[in-house]
Amino acid sequence: MARMTPGHNERGELFSAYLDGELTRDEVALVGDMLDGDEDAIAEFHAIREVRATLRLLPEFEVPAALLPDGHLGDRLSAYLDGELVSLEYRRVSRHLVDCPECRAELAELDRARIAVRSLPGVDTGMTGEIPVLPARKRRRGLIAGGIAATAAAAVLVLGLGIGGADAPVYSLDDLAARHVARASAEPASAVLPAMIEVSAP
């Protein structure tokens, strides 16, 4: 280890910070004075500059591509279909869809799957009269689970398996199934997709 005096340490620190462009105007002037004709100081300055340059010339590693997102929309597509994106993200997703045929194709497929689940026919349970169903669930969900959970909840409604609270609204099973099929057939994939992209165009 080289000998160290407080003076040397302070001087080296100033040189180091000078090279990093982190000194005040006064300190820069001080460094100039220190280097003026002092061979020891000049040698120390060069040594620090050399080690700094060596560190900065270390080769940069390429980050493995698998660690980074692929630039496509992924689980945001389902959230987009379910209207679960907040405005800023909605606009970004819409903009990406305009330019990316891959994501558009995936969106269309997801939409078909979503509609297929939503179009499941009601099952006759043999029950008569009226059954209680759960009030509408709160819409805030995680992005990934959102679409699946929402469609699963819809299926449960149709099957009449919901367990209602005391104040849950009451629907007749036939009425519920009819309304559901009507809604599903009113929004086929081909109709939904272009409309959404059109809305998004700036």
């Binding site: 080289a2 340490n9 080296g12 620190e13 040189f15 180091s16 910070a17 990093d20 040594a47 620090i48 050399e50 080690v51 700094r52 560190l55």
Partner: peptide, 9 residues
């Protein structure tokens, strides 16, 4: 930063 560079040197 300075002490680190100094040790490296």
């Amino acid at each position: 930063i300075h002490r680190g560079r100094k040790m490296l040197r």
